[in-house]
Amino acid sequence: MTEYKLVVVGAGGVGKSALTIQLIQNHFVDEYDPTIEDSYRKQVVIDGETCLLDILDTAGQEEYSAMRDQYMRTGEGFLCVFAINNTKSFEDIHHYREQIKRVKDSEDVPMVLVGNKCDLPSRTVDTKQAQDLARSYGIPFIETSAKTRQGVDDAFYTLVREIRKHKEKMSKDGKKKKKKSKTKCVIM
C-alpha cells in the first residue's frame, strides 16, 4: 500500500485542523484551538488504489514558523489553505509557496490551493482571484467548507493525484537520464 505524506499549511484560523478532522473523523470542530502540530493517518481508496494518507496539520501562528522547514522537508505534497473571508490569509499563500519551493529546492512541488469556509456569506476573496492565482502557479484550486464537508475529500484526493503525477514524471525523467548515460565512448 502506497503511503502519501501530505502537509496542510496556511495562516492561523483558516480551518486547516477543521478540514483535516472532517476528512479523518467526519465531524466539524467549530471551536478554535490553535494547533502546534498534529499528525493523522487514514486509509482510503483513490482511483481504485488503496493508500495510506499521513497528514500533518501544522501551526499557522507566526511564533511556530521555525518548525516549518522541518515538516516541509518531509512532506510530499501540500494543501495551501486560505479562508475566503480573510484576504490576508490569501496573500500569505505566496509566502508559504515560496518557502516550500526553497526548502524542497524545487520549482515543481505537488500543491493544491484550497479556499476554505465557502459556506460563509462574508467572502472577501473572489473565486476568480483564487483561480487566477492557482493557474499562475500551475496547481489545482478547490473551494471547501469544513463545516458542510463540501470539497473536503476532493481537496485531499486531488493532492494525492498531483503527487502521483509528480512521481510518474520524475521516474520518466530518471529513465531518460539513465538511457543517456548508457551511451559509451570508444577510443581507438
Rank of each mutant, 00 (worst) to 15 (best):
V125H: 06
V125K: 01
D126W: 04
D126H: 08
D126N: 09
D126V: 07
D126F: 10
D126I: 04
D126T: 06
D126K: 07
D126M: 06
D126S: 09
D126Q: 05
T127C: 11
T127N: 11
T127M: 12
T127V: 11
T127A: 11
T127Q: 10
T127W: 09
T127F: 09
K128Y: 09
K128F: 10
K128I: 10
K128M: 11
K128N: 13
K128R: 11
K128D: 13
K128S: 13
Q129T: 12
Q129Y: 08
Q129I: 11
Q129V: 06
Q129S: 10
Q129F: 04
A130Y: 15
A130H: 06
A130P: 07
A130C: 11
A130E: 08
A130L: 14
A130D: 02
A130M: 13
A130V: 11
A130K: 02
A130T: 04
Q131H: 12
Q131R: 15
Q131D: 12
Q131G: 09
Q131F: 07
Q131A: 13
Q131T: 11
Q131P: 03
Q131Y: 10
Q131L: 11
Q131W: 06
Q131V: 09
D132H: 08
D132L: 07
D132I: 06
D132P: 02
D132K: 07
D132Y: 03
D132R: 05
D132E: 13
D132T: 05
D132S: 09
D132N: 11
D132C: 05
L133F: 14
L133N: 03
L133K: 07
L133V: 12
L133R: 03
L133W: 07
L133P: 01
L133T: 03
L133C: 08
L133Q: 08
A134R: 01
A134G: 08
A134E: 04
A134V: 05
R135T: 10
R135L: 10
R135F: 04
R135Q: 13
S136Y: 14
S136F: 07
S136K: 11
S136D: 14
S136G: 11
S136P: 01
S136E: 15
S136C: 12
S136R: 09
Y137R: 02
Y137M: 11
Y137L: 15
Y137V: 08
Y137N: 05
Y137I: 13
Y137S: 09
Y137T: 04
Y137K: 05
Y137D: 07
G138V: 01
G138D: 06
I139G: 01
I139D: 00
F141N: 01
I142P: 00
S145F: 02
S145E: 05
S145D: 14
S145G: 05
A146F: 00
A146L: 00
R149Y: 13
Q150R: 10
Q150V: 11
Q150N: 13
G151S: 05
G151K: 03
V152Y: 05
V152L: 14
V152H: 02
V152R: 01
V152E: 01
V152W: 06
V152D: 02
V152F: 04
V152S: 03
V152P: 02
V152Q: 03
V152I: 12
V152T: 07
D153Y: 04
D153L: 07
D153H: 04
D153Q: 11
D153K: 04
D153N: 07
D153M: 10
D153W: 01
D153A: 12
D153T: 09
D153I: 10
D153C: 13
D153V: 09
D154H: 09
D154S: 12
D154F: 05
D154L: 10
D154A: 11
D154E: 15
D154W: 04
D154C: 07
D154I: 06
D154P: 05
D154M: 09
A155T: 03
A155I: 07
A155K: 00
A155D: 00
A155Y: 00
A155G: 05
A155C: 11
A155E: 00
A155N: 00
F156G: 00
F156N: 01
F156I: 15
F156A: 04
F156Q: 02
F156D: 00
F156S: 01
F156P: 00
Y157I: 14
Y157C: 13
Y157F: 09
Y157G: 10
Y157W: 06
Y157R: 12
Y157A: 14
Y157N: 15
Y157M: 14
Y157P: 02
T158A: 11
T158D: 04
T158M: 10
T158F: 09
T158Y: 14
L159D: 00
L159M: 02
L159R: 00
L159A: 06
L159G: 01
L159F: 01
V160C: 01
V160P: 00
V160N: 02
V160M: 02
V160D: 01
V160F: 04
V160Y: 03
V160T: 03
V160H: 02
V160G: 02
V160A: 04
V160S: 02
E162F: 01
E162W: 01
E162T: 06
E162R: 07
E162K: 06
E162Q: 10
E162H: 09
E162I: 02
E162G: 02
R164T: 04
R164F: 08
R164W: 02
K165S: 05
K165L: 07
K165W: 01
K165A: 09
H166M: 06
H166S: 10
H166D: 07
H166K: 06
H166A: 12
H166R: 11
K167E: 08
K167H: 13
K167P: 01
K167L: 03
K167F: 03
K167N: 14
K167M: 08
K167I: 03
K167V: 03
K167C: 04
K167S: 12
K167Q: 12
E168D: 12
K169A: 06
K169M: 15
K169S: 12
K169H: 14
K169L: 06
K169N: 12
M170G: 12
M170W: 11
M170C: 13
K172V: 14
K172I: 15
K172E: 05
K172G: 13
K172Y: 14
D173R: 01
D173V: 02
D173F: 09
G174K: 15
K175F: 06
K175S: 13
K175V: 07
K175C: 06
K176S: 13
K176G: 13
K177W: 06
K177I: 12
K177S: 14
K177C: 14
K178P: 15
K178H: 11
K178S: 11
K178G: 15
K178D: 15
K178W: 03
K178C: 10
K178I: 12
K178R: 07
K180V: 02
S181A: 08
S181E: 14
S181L: 04
K182L: 02
K182G: 09
T183D: 15
T183L: 01
T183F: 00
T183N: 14
V186G: 15
V186A: 14
V186L: 10
I187R: 15
I187V: 15
M188P: 15
M188G: 15
M188S: 15
